[in-house]
């Protein structure tokens, strides 16, 4: 089978499977989040009531948007404190068979920010830093709760469209409980079992030593007492030559974390190699399941949206925009990677695909996945807020690396994170109808709600927050010693590494371009701050928009109302997304992957 056909077939299979599963899941989520009686609510009612009683929650009361927002912020503040404390105290806590010492304060801060914001940026190496309790009770719990937070915000924005002259938008504690209890937990349990079936490990054993057949000699980087690499006077890593015939195999409760890592679009790997590690993602089938899990809930939420607003075509229009952008950019990634490095070809190396080799650019890719599954995974993980990786994005060709970077910069809405994808897409829909309204001279409306100055001001806060923190953060890193010290590659590629790090943090993705030493005080602190602002300021604006819309009356549909369920609206939406993404980021992209691409072409 030819490589392009393999890519097209794999992509079509994954998308067909996800769309097939997304429909019933989307309808189910609409029922659950609105409390319409179904089998899950009946079975889960006693547990749900117990949770409310134990936490002192009045499930029948609803609040306005500002009280809802402050509840959400307090909840996530508490989550950040718990994750921070677990890391700093882990040497005294149980389930730490490797006796890992406390994680450094700056790394603990960064990781706490990363996991409450659904970013899951990892400056640390999981298997050599985190005890099992920290992984399970800190990181995996936040994988559920951060995804539940995102889903709650998306549901509230939908309520904003469907409620009329309402002062309340919902109950945050009920929304988070229901999305965790009825959606994320059962799906994660199912996927964890399926992954165990493929060979993903699930235990709390201490690490195992295996004796290798051959002796291995390698340069081992020296680290200080906090696990950070030691550098010499010139800033190069200090290494020592080590010969060994023993390989340590890390263990742990991986499958349970892997499942919610993908389903919750979190992305924080149990191991440093993330989904490239054979204990996280051992087979082609587990890889298929993980890509599908990444895309499932964000796509299903478009059905939820259609069901809740009473017109499923509205959801289909959003889904079409998501999928068109996703497919187009995934194809660019695949073509770039399969095309390979022109310098390799000019050196008389056969880089073409044959029956015995994949051809193209296999640097940083697992042979068990190949180029098609790696390009698809890279596009899925950055088109959502996941950030899990099954290949090294840093090793992609310049235009291959451009794709994950640009997918994040578009706002991660192809199809986006759990909840975040839908509400980001809805903000772009509001912008789209506003632009269309300006062109035709009518008051913009979306789903029967007039879009006025307040909504546009809030949408502007939403749209501008992330590019502001990403570009200012990148500029500061480029200008300061602390920022430049972490870069391992010179020139345009080094700039891409910094831009990628801040783009990933600001958009709450969490994948890394690697090639950058991010476990430093500069990057731990700056990226931590960027992650929080990039997550919660747009959420505040979204909830304010929801409150504003909910308080409005619904205007009747007339002949002058622009339809928002057809191909024309989908094209308008895609145009708005691409236009804003390009306007925000083209100058920065031109200095990174674009110039690197032309340098490579020029050298060729």
């Amino acid at each position: 089978m030819s490589a392009p056909l393999q890519f097209a077939l794999l992509g079509a299979l994954v998308l067909a499977f996800v769309i097939l599963c997304a429909r019933p899941l989307g309808i189910y989520m609409a029922d659950v989040m609105e409390g319409k009686p179904n089998f899950a609510l009946r079975w889960g009612a006693p547990l749900e009531r117990w949770i409310y009683r134990a936490c002192g929650i009045d499930a029948r009361s609803e609040t306005g948007w500002s009280t809802y927002t402050i509840g959400l912020l307090v909840f996530n503040l508490a989550g950040a404190m718990v994750v921070y404390a677990l890391q700093r105290l882990q040497q005294w806590l149980p389930l730490n068979p490797q006796h890992f010492s406390a994680v450094s304060a700056d790394s603990s801060f960064n990781t706490a920010m990363a996991f409450v914001t659904n970013t899951d940026w990892q400056g640390y190496s999981g298997e050599s830093t985190m005890g099992y309790l920290t992984q399970a009770a800190g990181l995996a719990v936040q994988n559920f709760l951060s995804a539940a937070t995102g889903m709650a915000v998306a549901i509230v924005l939908i309520r904003g469209f469907i409620r009329r002259s309402a002062a309340t938008i919902g109950n945050f504690w009920v929304d988070v409980t229901r999305s965790s209890l009825y959606v994320l937990l059962p799906l994660a349990a199912l996927l964890a079992v399926a992954l165990v079936g493929q060979g993903v490990i699930q235990n709390v054993h201490s690490y195992r030593d295996a004796t290798t057949i051959e002796k291995l000699t390698f340069d081992n980087p020296k680290t200080d007492s906090e696990g950070k690499p030691l550098l010499d006077d010139k800033g190069n890593p200090v290494t020592e030559s080590v010969t060994t015939q023993t390989q340590t195999l890390p263990m742990g409760p991986v499958a349970s974390q892997e499942a919610i890592k993908e389903l919750g679009t979190n992305g924080g790997g149990f191991f440093n190699a993330n989904s490239a590690h054979p204990f996280e993602n051992p087979t082609a089938l587990s890889n298929f399941m993980e890509i599908a899990a990444i895309l499932l809930i964000p796509l299903a939420l478009t059905y939820t949206f259609g069901v809740m607003v009473g017109d499923r075509r509205q959801g289909y229009a959003l889904m079409a925009a998501m999928l068109i952008l996703f497919a187009a950019l995934a194809a660019v990634a695949f073509v770039s990677e399969q095309g390979g490095n022109p310098l390799t070809a000019s050196a008389s190396v056969d880089a073409g695909a044959t029956a015995t080799q994949s051809g193209g650019n296999m640097e940083g890719k697992e042979t068990r996945f190949g180029i098609a599954a790696s390009a698809l995974f890279a596009s899925a993980t950055t088109g959502t807020s996941t950030g899990a990786v099954n290949s090294a994005h840093d090793s992609m060709m310049p235009m291959g690396g451009f794709v994950p970077l640009f997918l994040m910069q578009l706002g991660e809405l192809t199809p986006g994170g759990v909840g975040t994808g839908l509400y980001t897409m809805l903000i772009f829909a509001i912008l789209g109808v506003f632009i269309a309204g300006l062109m035709i001279g009518r008051t913009p409306e979306y789903l029967g709600k007039k879009i006025q100055a307040r909504e546009m001001k809030l949408a502007s806060i939403f749209i501008l927050t992330t590019p502001t923190v990403v570009l200012i953060g990148t500029a500061i890193a480029v200008m300061t010693e602390g920022g430049r010290a972490g870069v391992l590659n010179p020139g345009a590629h080094g700039f891409s590494e910094i831009l990628y790090a801040f783009t990933s943090a600001g958009n709450n993705n969490g994948s890394a371009f690697a090639g950058i030493s991010a476990n430093t005080v500069f990057y731990n602190v700056s990226l931590g701050i960027v992650m929080w602002i990039g997550r919660f300021w747009p959420i505040v604006a979204t909830l304010a928009i929801a409150g504003s819309l909910a308080s409005k009356k619904r205007v009747p549909v007339t002949e002058g109302t622009m339809p928002t369920h057809g191909a024309l609206f989908t094209c308008l939406l895609i145009g708005t997304i691409v236009l804003i993404g390009v306007l925000n980021y083209v100058p920065a992209l031109a200095l990174g992957p674009v110039v690197e691409h032309f340098m490579l072409s020029g050298a060729h």
Partner: peptide
């Protein structure tokens, strides 16, 4: 050291609450 990072977390939280309150005071602009 811990107190500094906990204060940074608290500061980020307070800034977000501040944004919420500021938006609450934002008129409809019409």
């Amino acid at each position: 050291m811990d107190i500094i990072y906990l204060l940074v977390i608290l500061g980020l939280f307070m800034a977000s609450v501040g944004l919420t309150l500021a938006i609450g005071r934002l008129g409809d602009g019409s």
